[in-house]
Simulated scan of single mutants.
Amino acid sequence: MEIDNLFTPLPPSFYQQPTLKLAKALLGCLLVHETEDGTASGVIVETEAYLGSTDRAAHSYQNRRTKRTEVMFGSAGLAYTHTMHTHCLINVVSGGEGAPESVLIRAVEPYSGIDLMLKRRPVEKMQNLTSGPGKLTKALGISMKDYGRTLYEPPLFIAKGIAPSRITQGKRIGIGNAGEAKDYPLRFWIPGNRYVSR
């Protein structure tokens, strides 16, 4: 996928849209991370939406406000990083002040800085490099230190890419204990892309 831009961050206004629209709008965009070791980026190919206080699968269900979820109550366009098992995951805060919603970035297609990604996360098959939420953060060097960062300016930001011609929608993954919320069709992905998690 060839993208003709110089990694220009999308403006804060990009994040001022309903969470479900944002989850789809993020597909095809570039997640870029600048570090001392170099810059690496990937095209977002899979996302999941979490609808805050009414969504039993969301960390902020029933407006649960803790040290972990505090950033979700802030403005849209912030990074909500959290750990699951031993992995760090990155979410885009959405919904606006006091509406703790977010979009999980589930998978990216490596775009630039691939040698750096492979150094951070050596794999035999390229397909396994960034085909999951914990895989992509390790490859891009994203960690809990990025909690609360704005995603519209360096060093960690989202840049305009190429909108996909088709988007597929289905159930979210790995949330079996969330009652009826486990069946919500809030996962979005670019069909046919080999980096989609499953």
Rank of each mutant, 00 (worst) to 15 (best):
E2Y: 14
I3F: 10
N5I: 05
N5H: 13
N5D: 15
L6Q: 14
F7S: 03
T8N: 14
P9L: 11
L10D: 11
L10W: 04
P11H: 02
P12I: 01
Y15V: 02
Q16C: 05
Q17H: 02
T19F: 03
T19M: 05
L20P: 00
K21D: 15
L22R: 00
L22H: 01
L22T: 00
A23G: 10
A23S: 15
G28Y: 00
C29Y: 00
V32F: 07
E34W: 03
E36T: 08
D37P: 00
S41Y: 13
G42I: 05
G42R: 04
G42M: 06
I44K: 03
T47K: 02
T47F: 06
T47H: 07
E48L: 05
E48S: 05
E48R: 03
Y50V: 08
Y50K: 08
G52W: 06
S53C: 08
T54K: 15
R56F: 06
A58H: 08
A58E: 09
S60N: 06
S60M: 07
Y61S: 13
R68W: 11
R68I: 14
R68K: 15
E70Y: 07
V71N: 07
M72L: 15
M72V: 04
F73P: 03
G74N: 12
A76T: 05
G77D: 09
L78P: 01
L78N: 09
T81K: 05
H82D: 06
H82F: 15
H82G: 02
T83Y: 06
L89K: 05
L89H: 10
G95D: 12
E97I: 11
G98F: 11
P100N: 13
E101L: 02
S102N: 05
S102K: 03
S102G: 10
S102V: 01
V103A: 11
V103Y: 06
L104Q: 01
A107P: 00
E109M: 11
Y111H: 13
S112L: 13
S112V: 02
G113W: 14
L116C: 10
L116K: 09
R120A: 09
R120F: 14
R121S: 09
P122V: 06
V123H: 09
E124W: 09
K125D: 15
M126Y: 13
Q127G: 04
Q127P: 02
N128D: 15
N128H: 15
N128V: 02
N128E: 15
G134H: 09
G134N: 04
K135N: 11
L136M: 15
L136A: 13
L136Y: 08
T137N: 05
A139Y: 10
M144C: 04
Y147E: 10
G148F: 10
R149Q: 09
R149F: 10
L156F: 08
L156D: 07
I158R: 02
I158T: 01
I158A: 06
I158G: 04
I162Q: 05
I162W: 00
I162C: 01
P164W: 01
P164Y: 03
P164K: 02
I167T: 04
I167N: 05
G170M: 04
G170I: 00
I173D: 04
I173N: 01
G174M: 12
I175Y: 01
G176I: 00
G176D: 14
N177M: 11
N177A: 12
N177Q: 15
N177Y: 11
E180W: 11
L186N: 08
R187Y: 11
F188S: 08
W189L: 13
W189S: 14
G192D: 14
N193Q: 07
R194E: 15
Y195E: 11
V196F: 14
S197C: 10
